[in-house]
Nucleic acid binder design. Structure first.
Length: 541
RNA sequence: GCGCCUGUAGCUCAACGGAAGAGCAACGGCCUUCUAAGCCGUGGGUUCCGGGUUCGAGUCCCGGCAGGCGUACCA
């Protein structure tokens, strides 16, 4: 049940019948509903190849359209040559029937044709608790995966744990420094170590539970043990946020299997590696990067880059046609080298798509909250969820494009007054639930009841429902989950207006049944949309 | 210096290359009703500036300006 697809198919057939050159047929939303429900600009696009006036072409298309379409009430030509389509009441009733049949599957499609896609996000270092930046990435990444699956991609989520390398040693040494501090010695955190107060708690845990003597064990062993504790905590945080990964991938797996050395061999064989000053360089500049990059240092250690290449190669090896990585703005400089590596290894350019999720500026009542990674002074993701709640946080993170920097005001996020737009959509859902509580077990809808729908607010609501599949499709294809949020706000507006103007439970049984069916349809779409955003659909507020 | 992101109403932000929008703030209305966390109305714009491509540019390209981030044999 997708009115847009129906119309596009109609138009394509008509254009083919007219033997026009092949141009993409897409639909727009006219600026105002009284100008139409969907609009098509093919006549404008055809003006040049046909060397004719666009309005004249529009006229020709209009006349060639099958006149007997029960879903189209009328077509108008507007402006320079827009074709504006108006749905018939029958079409809008059909939306309601279709929704009753498909339920939450409404808006699902097989557009992705089962293509396997892997979404990697957050992937924070296992050296401290997750912060607010991770909260944004988690909200965006998780919603992306949900939407991708909705439109027929076989999408999965993954967290890459950097549990190897120097930072793990530093973590071990930082824990040890805290252990010594607890014994009354001065606190000496190593250069580049971790200053956060959370390290003290980890040291206490290590004192009690580390298998062996944490004061004398190798820093790497202590670090690895601690990292595992931190990862477990990160996993709990994300689960409290409603994010469950399909897989947690540990960098140490690569070090154990030696996959990174195999990757290096492969690059060497292809002639993409050279030595300079004792270090091994990957000739990434030959594949579009600004510069060549070190993959093995002069003292023989792999840089983080080499296992990272191996990891992404592993993604391809696992049968994913596309890997989408969500990175922070501080890593955007790495996009070029990673894509260069993918190309050097023979993967198509589109294989790796990097989404840079921009920074979050944390505010409290309009004032910036100072955060410092060095001193470990920061608001953790746990504190964020505790203070503002998972739903409110996700709603804010999904209300903007990921490419925009975002101001997150904690006070505003907690606000539950009428000024706050955060609960607008959920409130609509709760209101509908309330109606159904009052209605009790209603009678079954009769086909003839639909004739009772007449108010403009009812048609407007049905029009809004008809746009859900389009919103899902756009959000999925453009990797733009905030589109779902924009759509749901519009739907909620239509509903609140309807609620205000049209009493659902009345002494007219047919009208009551019809309006209850309409409410149910709205409720299903709100709930499904909220699910795609990883938010709950409360029955009471 | 170079690279990336951002610049749209007073503020926070939407807008598949297609006809500039919403929320908040301001002002004025609506609770004896299924939830007022809601609804209705009013005002508010050189889409940072200058070129270009296009039938059509907030959107794409080039050049500026402003803010943010990055620019390691760290991750």
């Amino acid at each position: 049940m997708n009115l847009s697809h129906h119309l596009i198919a109609r138009l394509r057939r008509t254009l083919a019948g007219l033997q026009y050159p092949d141009v993409p047929v897409t639909l727009e939303l006219p600026p105002s509903p009284d100008m139409g429900d969907r609009s098509c600009t093919v006549a404008l696009a055809l003006a040049k190849p046909l060397k004719r006036a666009p309005r004249q072409i529009a006229q020709e298309i209009l006349q060639a359209l099958p006149p007997d379409d029960p879903w189209i009430d009328r077509v108008e030509i507007a402006g320079p040559g827009y074709l504006n389509f108006f749905w018939s009441r029958e079409a809008l009733r059909q939306v309601l029937r279709g929704l009753r049949e498909s339920g939450p599957d409404y808006g699902s499609s097989d557009l992705g044709a089962g293509e396997r896609r892997l979404f990697e996000f957050v992937s924070a270092n296992p050296t401290g608790p997750l912060n607010i930046v991770s909260a944004r990435a988690a909200a965006v990444g998780d919603s992306l995966v949900r939407v991708q699956r909705k439109i027929g991609f076989d999408a999965q989520s993954e967290f890459y744990v950097n549990d190897a390398g120097r930072q793990v040693d530093l973590l071990g040494e930082s824990v040890r420094a805290r252990l010594r501090e607890a014994l009354g010695r001065p606190l000496e955190i190593p250069e580049g170590g971790y200053h956060g107060i959370y390290v003290r708690d980890l040291a206490e845990q290590a004192r009690q539970e580390f298998p062996g003597d944490p004061l004398t064990a190798p820093a790497r062993d202590l670090g690895r043990w601690t990292a595992q504790r931190i990862v477990a905590g990160q996993r709990e945080t994300l689960e409290a946020y409603g994010v469950a990964y399909h897989r947690w991938f540990f960098e140490s797996e690569i070090h154990q299997s030696g996959a990174h050395w195999q990757t290096l061999e492969r690059l060497k064989q292809e002639g993409h590696i050279y030595e300079k000053d004792g270090a091994l360089y990957f000739r990434s500049s030959a594949f579009g990067d600004d510069d060549d990059r070190v993959v093995v240092t002069s003292d023989g250690r792999p840089t983080y880059f080499l296992p990272d290449i191996a990891y992404h190669l592993d993604k391809a090896g696992r049968g994913y046609a596309k890997a989408v990585d969500l990175w922070g703005p501080d890593h955007h400089g790495h996009v070029g080298r990673m894509q260069a590596a993918m190309r050097a290894l023979g993967l198509p350019v589109e294989f790796l798509e990097v989404v840079i999720v921009q920074q979050v500026n944390l505010l409290r009542g309009g004032q910036p909250v100072k955060m410092s990674k060095r001193t470990g002074e920061m608001i953790t993701m746990d504190e964020l969820i505790e203070e503002v709640g998972s739903d409110a946080a996700r709603q804010i993170f999904l209300s903007r494009r990921w490419s925009s920097p975002l101001d997150f005001d904690i006070e505003m996020a907690k606000d539950r007054s009428e000024k706050s737009p955060i609960f607008y959509v959920q409130y609509a859902h709760a209101r509908i639930s309330s109606i159904f509580r009052k209605a009790g077990d209603g009678e079954e809808l009769q086909e003839s009841d639909l004739e009772a729908l007449h108010a403009p607010e009812e048609w407007d609501l049905l029009r809004s429902l008809s746009l859900f599949p389009d919103a899902v499709e756009t959000a999925g294809l453009q990797l733009a989950p905030h589109r779902i949020n924009t759509y749901l706000s519009d739907l909620a507006t239509s509903f609140h207006r309807f609620y205000h103007e049209c009493r659902v439970l009345s002494d007219d049984p047919a009208l009551t049944r019809a309006r209850l069916a309409l409410c149910r349809a709205v409720q299903v779409v709100l709930k499904e949309g909220l699910r795609l955003m990883g938010m709950s659909a409360p029955d009471q507020m």
